[in-house]
Design a protein around this nucleic acid. Structure first.
Length: 309
DNA sequence: TCCTCCCTGTTC
DNA sequence: GAACAGGGAGGA
């Protein structure tokens, strides 16, 4: 569920809650949610400081500056459908779907100088006692009901060797319409599956694919390469507009999505087609129909969105 | 290029 | 108690 606007909102709401804090201990409640060797994870993460929270595509990146290392590391999360973050008070018990907990402690000026000793009692993922010198600041929970999401620990220089990372297309909000249009035009698949293909453009999921196709007046099953670049450039513009508006409204909350403060977004109230099967088109009043494209539920207006070829 | 599978809670 | 939600890996 979390697509680009939702992950962006999570990054923005999580950042002020965790940047500057030190990870005192990690608790792995579901080992399968971690895509990094747990011993390495347990050795490197405790004692590190959170320095930045970022987004790339639908990935959330938490930059860590480990106390005893000069180079930064990234905790990389993919939330898939049901991943969530919460910062709870110290000592809060895990929920039913909590997968990983990071115990956070407040930083001090002394720590900023990088001279504080790090307690390492972690062999395996046994709960740690924390660093003991700083006072607890809270617990970062990574919850994921359907367990599709994951966390992995990577050094920046490892990213290019990660197939998924290396194959990601441009960030849509950073790319000119013409560049996106050219990337769309190079594909012979249906335009909807092209929008969903992270190699073509990064961060688009089912919601924003359907919404941008409606705004652009394109039938989701139109072959991308059959469309004139002017139409594809318009699609790129509509995609950016819908993503931008959603970010302004803190994303869309359908079922599970919440930002890192537990708040729902409000862009779902502006959906023209997604989740509106059988309802009248907001433009022409025709009944919206649904089909499956690229294995995804797809809703569109049969009158406003004409098939190209 | 497209289909199936993974997973669990909600809806029909 | 089946259908459905869906990102991405992997296979056809």
């Amino acid at each position: 569920m979390p697509e680009l606007p939702e992950v962006e909102t999570i990054a923005r709401t999580l950042s002020p809650q965790i940047v500057g804090k030190t990870v005192a201990a990690v608790h792995l409640l579901r080992p399968e949610s971690l895509q990094t060797d747990r011993r390495i994870f347990a050795r490197v993460v405790p004692g590190s400081r959170v320095t930045r929270v970022m987004r790339r595509a639908k990935l959330l990146l938490v930059e860590l500056s480990p106390a005893e290392r000069l180079f930064p590391m990234f905790l990389i999360f993919h939330l898939k459908m049901t991943g969530r973050f919460f910062v709870h008070p110290p000592g809060s018990p895990p929920g039913k779907h909590t997968r990983i907990i990071f115990d956070l402690e407040e930083g001090t000026p002394e720590d900023a100088a990088g001279c504080r000793p790090v307690v390492r009692q972690h062999e395996g993922m046994a709960p740690g006692e924390g660093l003991g010198k700083l006072h607890p600041a809270g617990r970062l929970f990574f919850d994921d009901m359907r367990t599709f999401g994951y966390c992995r620990l990577m050094r920046p220089e490892e990213l290019p060797a990660w197939d998924f990372w290396a194959s990601l297309g441009p960030e849509p909000l950073d790319a000119p319409d013409e560049e996106l249009a050219a990337r769309f035009a190079a594909r012979r698949a249906s335009i909807k599956s092209v929008l969903l293909d992270q190699r073509v453009v990064a961060g688009v999921g089912n919601i924003y694919a359907d919404e941008s196709l409606f705004r652009a007046g394109l039938h989701p099953q139109t072959v991308a390469s059959s469309l004139p670049e002017t139409r594809l450039a318009r699609l790129a513009g509509e995609l950016k507009a819908v993503l931008t508006r959603s970010i302004e409204e803190c994303g869309s909350s359908i079922r599970d999505y919440r930002d890192a403060k537990g708040n729902a977004g409000s862009f779902q109230n502006s959906f023209a087609v997604y989740g509106r099967k059988g309802l009248p088109c907001v433009v022409c009043g025709a009944e919206l129909v649904s089909t499956r494209v690229a294995g995804r539920g797809t809703v569109f207006c049969p009158r406003c969105q004409e098939r190209g070829t």
